[in-house]
Amino acid sequence: MRTHVLTGATSGIGAALARALAERGDRLVLLARGDEAAAALTADFSQAQVLVADLADPGTLNGLGRQIDGPVDSLLHVAGVVELSPVSRLRLHDWEEQLAVNLTSPAVLTRELLPHLRASRGIAVFVNSSAGLSASAGWSSYAASKFGLRALADALRAEESEHGVRVTTVYPSRTATPMQEKVHEQEGSAYDASRWLRAETVVSTVLHVLDLPADATIPEVTVRPAPARA
Rank of each mutant, 00 (worst) to 15 (best):
F126Q: 02
E112Q: 12
S130C: 06
D94V: 05
V52N: 04
S88G: 06
L156H: 10
D35L: 11
R24V: 07
E96S: 11
A144H: 09
S204W: 07
Y171K: 02
A176Q: 09
L41G: 03
A119V: 01
T222D: 12
Y191A: 00
W95L: 14
T42K: 15
A230Q: 14
Q67P: 04
T205Y: 07
L55M: 14
L64N: 01
D69V: 03
L17S: 02
V223A: 08
Y191N: 02
H4K: 01
V170E: 14
V82P: 02
P115W: 05
T3R: 12
M1I: 01
R24C: 06
G8V: 01
S11T: 08
V127C: 09
L117F: 04
R157T: 11
E200L: 05
V82F: 05
T10H: 08
G132T: 07
T60V: 08
G65E: 02
P178I: 08
H93K: 15
G148T: 12
P71L: 01
E162C: 13
L109E: 07
A9T: 02
T222N: 07
S134K: 14
R229F: 06
L117W: 05
L6V: 04
F147M: 14
A158N: 15
G59Q: 14
E181D: 09
V5S: 00
T177E: 07
R111L: 07
P225R: 01
S173W: 13
G63V: 08
D94C: 03
A230F: 10
A43S: 15
A79C: 05
A144I: 10
Q67D: 11
R33P: 10
A32G: 09
R111M: 06
S134Y: 09
R66P: 00
P178N: 11
F45P: 12
A38C: 15
G164H: 13
H208I: 01
M1D: 07
L99Q: 15
Q67L: 11
T10F: 00
D94F: 03
L114C: 03
H116W: 04
V82Q: 10
M1S: 05
E162Y: 12
R195Y: 02
H163M: 14
E185G: 09
E185D: 10
S74W: 01
P106E: 05
